[in-house]
Write a protein that binds this DNA or RNA. Structure first.
Length: 112
DNA sequence: CGTGTGACTAGGA
DNA sequence: ATCCTAGCCACAC
């Protein structure tokens, strides 16, 4: 696989995130088989704008904080999107994050 | 090929 | 609990 596929694979995983659920960059990286590439996942998400089907608002850091909210068009767009999915966000942080967390490795678990 | 950057994370103080 | 540090990866120059 080529390095360019990394972005596509990140998008693939993000697209699998169920409605009303969220996950972390590290979890995605781990699902891709490269748990230490969490930063690169964030970088990939930065380019996710090219694919509108990627629900980037469902991806937060490991603390459930909307670290990438500034990368959205609106100031509180990311928060609004999450709240529209039934999530509660306060101080840029997802409430009950642990319950809402969705681990791609458990659902997908594809290692290559 | 070296350096800097970032939507990250884990571990130590 | 918070703050700081180092490691990590992919990418732009």
């Amino acid at each position: 696989m080529s390095n360019q596929d990394f972005f596509l694979r990140v998008y693939e995983v993000v697209k699998q995130i169920p409605y009303g659920r969220v996950t972390s960059y590290g979890a995605i990286a781990k699902a891709l088989g490269t748990p230490k590439s969490s930063r690169a996942v964030g970088y990939a998400m930065n380019a996710s704008h090219s694919d509108p089907d990627v629900p980037a608002h469902r991806v937060v850091n490991r603390n459930g904080v909307l670290t990438g909210k500034h990368h959205f068009a609106g100031t509180h767009l990311m928060q609004q999107l999450l709240e529209s999915e039934g999530l509660k966000v306060e101080a840029d942080q997802i409430l009950n994050f642990k319950e809402r967390f969705w681990d791609p490795t458990e659902e997908l678990g594809f290692q290559e």
